[in-house]
Amino acid sequence: MAVTLTVNGKTQQVDADPETPLLYVLRDDLELNGAKYGCGVGQCGACTVMVDNEAVLSCVTPVLLLEGRRISTVEGLGTMEKPGPMQQAFIEQQAAQCGFCIPGMMMRAQALLQANPTVDEAAVRAHLEPNLCRCGTHMRIVKAVMRAGELMHQSSQSGGST
């Protein structure tokens, strides 16, 4: 069955059973690697993406629910050549060991900061609670998200004046 999805601003048709979790459509049909399979049952956050402005676990979200919604993955935040503020901050803070959990962390944080880039550290920690990291990169992830907030805030300020 054909499903129409809008991912990172691009609308495309994929041929998938409507019950297929978004994760597999992103990875296998759209060849996007950002969302990772970690548990498949909504317990780890490795598959986190944004739908409209919310962080969503793509491993437990059937594509059927997503027609007409705006889906974004870490690939939509920027590229290696032109990293977005969230990516820039994670590179600056060297916030990864294996990195497997990181795209999910970034997408969950993006949803938080898009609503309010000036949140405090406690809010960041509380917001990231659903996402697991096994390498113990937590300290850096929190710092990177705080830094991303700064960068986003700065660019929204300067964006207003130019």
């Binding site: 690697n33 990772k36 935040l77 590229t79 795209p103």
Partner: peptide, 29 residues
């Protein structure tokens, strides 16, 4: 000196660097 890790830019942009991300022609699951 603290050199930036060479693997991190790929990891934060979703580049296919994990074995989980491999897609070879004709690949089955």
């Amino acid at each position: 000196k603290s050199m930036h890790r060479v693997d991190i830019p790929a990891k934060v942009t979703g580049a296919p660097i994990y074995v989980q991300d491999m897609r070879l022609p004709g690949m089955v699951h």
